[in-house]
Design a protein around this nucleic acid. Structure first.
Lengths: 145, 145
DNA sequence: CATATTTAAGACATCAATGTCTTAAATATA
DNA sequence: TATATTTAAGACATTGATGTCTTAAATATG
């Protein structure tokens, strides 16, 4: 897979928080609620979202009516920020064969072509925001069910 | 990484076999020689290349002067064949979030954009052959050292 | 036939990603 | 203050990819 499972969980959670904040008017959404609706293990999702709170993309609050929220408005959070926080930027920076010696100056046989592609993928994550991908009707279920 | 380590090993080995057949005039190249020059574990590379012989991309021969060869000429072997044999085609067929419900008829929020990208990546592997990527001078070392 | 070379097969080890579970800490509310 | 709710932290288990090692089978050559 292009993105790790953890990373896809993180993006899906961000999209669901965005939707739930709009739909319900609440600010903080409990992880238990997200995990249930996304069909992801609660404890595992908790740990993933902790990374996003550490990187200031999300904010958490403990106790009743607590949960997780987005620190900025959805149109100001780019998907790449979440991808970077979980998987890092290696995918967009390294050789398709994983060769550390490969570079613009010393290219592997696929360097030029792969570089064009990975820049396009990077653009995909850089141009789309949480807002852009937030589902505003009930046409698609982020649970995958 | 886009490709598994095993898959990058397989492609690099195929490129080195192609080069060595040209440079040395030999038909079969021993795995030990490939492993050493690619800086890959011998036994591990053996197992990977076994998959390629099972899928008829390569052919093996035991005993002195034995080794591995390409079954067809390098210009007739597409990179995608090796990728498919090792990693499968899932990357080029599935949702970026791994959602099994996502499809053209029932798209996730990134479906359309990601589909365009993965088709381009697929094209990269479909249009390039072993011959196209075989290094014909000593400008780049496939060992990564 | 004996020996050296080479792949085949499979057992086993290691490691990172994923997933589960328990306890602690913070917070709201009755 | 007591209780329920919720995240934080960390131990532990599982799984698949990666890597190591040993033995068997095939083949060429002296």
């Amino acid at each position: 897979m292009l993105l790790s499972k953890s990373c896809t969980y993180a993006v899906r959670a961000a999209l669901l928080i965005s939707k739930k904040k709009i739909d319900s008017g609440r600010n903080y959404i409990p992880v238990s609620e997200l995990a249930k609706e996304l069909d992801i293990s609660f404890h595992f999702l908790t740990k993933i979202l902790q990374k996003l709170t550490e990187s200031k993309i999300m904010n958490s609050f403990r106790g009743p009516n607590g949960g997780i929220t987005l620190t900025r408005s959805p149109e100001k959070i780019k998907i790449i920020e979440i991808v970077d926080a979980i998987d890092g930027m290696k995918l967009f920076e390294s050789c398709i064969f994983g060769l550390p010696t490969c570079s613009d100056d010393h290219p592997c046989p696929l360097h030029k072509q792969w570089k064009l592609q990975r820049i396009e993928i990077l653009k995909l994550f850089k141009t789309n925001t949480i807002h852009d991908l937030t589902i505003n009707d009930d046409e698609f279920n982020l649970s995958g069910k």
